[in-house]
């Protein structure tokens, strides 16, 4: 009897992962097939629009070069995002403790989002050269805002009654923060983290595109200039793959750091 129960329960979680992946995979496959058929049947020039098959083939042949350009992009993304997270946490905690700072900083944070990155990124190259630094700055600039706002919002969404309970126990502001505000904000933080990481990869590509020694961005720019549309698109596919992987990693981190969140949510809905 015990065995039959184990067997019965085991497939359930795998089914949910499968059923989550199946629809987007099927949609993607349908799109790729339509594309392939349209290009072959229509006799489109590969330099204009290469077929998926050609992209795969040429991309595979150029795999060493693409890989050599993927590594620096990944490195910049992670470093830039780490800087962004540090800035976001510092700002959000400072703002949470000081209403004065909130009034002083929040309008500036919002204004920082009005900076057109497309105009600033080339200047970064002039100021800081072709190395790592301008990329890290651009990535941090585009990603720190959603994370900071997510955190500030998360801290503020703490149940007022929970704060009162802590106060009745004699908790000072710091203890209120550690025991309630911080854990309450973590679910919002992970949502913001997902938005941020999606922007981070795009930010890295963009920063490289306007000037870099290596990286997927500058690789795309160079391939475009030599009319290698197939290799541009191969690099795009790699970029998308990297983004999806980083995105999924945030779920892994969420499960590891706040396992209670998904469990509590599941029990409320089911």
């Amino acid at each position: 009897m015990k065995n039959s129960i184990t067997v019965k329960l085991a497939p359930a979680p795998r089914m949910t992962v499968l059923s989550a992946l199946a629809p987007p995979a099927a949609t993607l496959a349908a799109l790729v097939i339509t594309w392939q058929v349209a290009v072959t049947a229509g006799g489109v020039q590969p330099a204009i629009l290469p077929s998926p098959q050609r992209i795969l083939q040429q991309g595979w042949e150029a795999r060493t070069t693409i890989w050599e350009n993927t590594l620096p992009t990944l490195q910049e993304t992670l470093l830039g995002f780490a800087v962004s997270l540090t800035v976001a946490w510092t700002l959000a905690i400072l703002i949470d403790f000081s209403p004065g700072l909130r009034r002083a900083l929040v309008p500036l944070l919002v204004a920082s989002q009005a900076i057109p990155i497309i105009a600033i990124a080339p200047l970064m190259v002039i100021w800081f050269g072709f190395g790592m630094l301008p990329k890290v700055i651009v990535i941090a600039l585009v990603t720190f805002f959603p994370v900071t706002v997510g955190l500030i919002d998360g801290f503020n969404r703490t149940d007022r009654d929970a704060i009162n309970l802590l106060r009745s126990m004699g908790a000072n502001r710091w203890k209120q923060f550690v025991y309630v505000r911080l854990p309450s904000a973590l679910p919002s933080f992970f949502t913001a983290l997902r938005i941020g990481i999606a922007y981070a990869v795009t930010g890295a590509i963009f920063a490289e595109y306007v000037g870099a020694e290596r990286g997927l961005g500058i690789y795309m720019a160079m391939m475009k200039n030599s009319f290698r549309t197939d290799l541009v698109l191969a690099a795009v596919a790699v970029t998308a793959f990297v983004s999806v992987c980083l995105f999924l990693l945030t779920y892994v981190a969420e499960r590891a750091i706040i396992p209670w969140h998904s469990k509590a949510r599941r029990s409320w809905h089911g």
Binding site: D159, D161, A162, N164, L165, R167, S168, M169, G170, V180, P183, L186, I258, W260, H261, K263, A264
Partner: peptide, 17 residues
């Protein structure tokens, strides 16, 4: 002073974490 009273609010306020 709060230290003489133990307060139980309407909601259970048990923390999921």
């Amino acid at each position: 002073q709060h230290e003489h009273f133990a307060y139980m609010p309407q909601k259970d306020l048990l923390f999921p974490w």
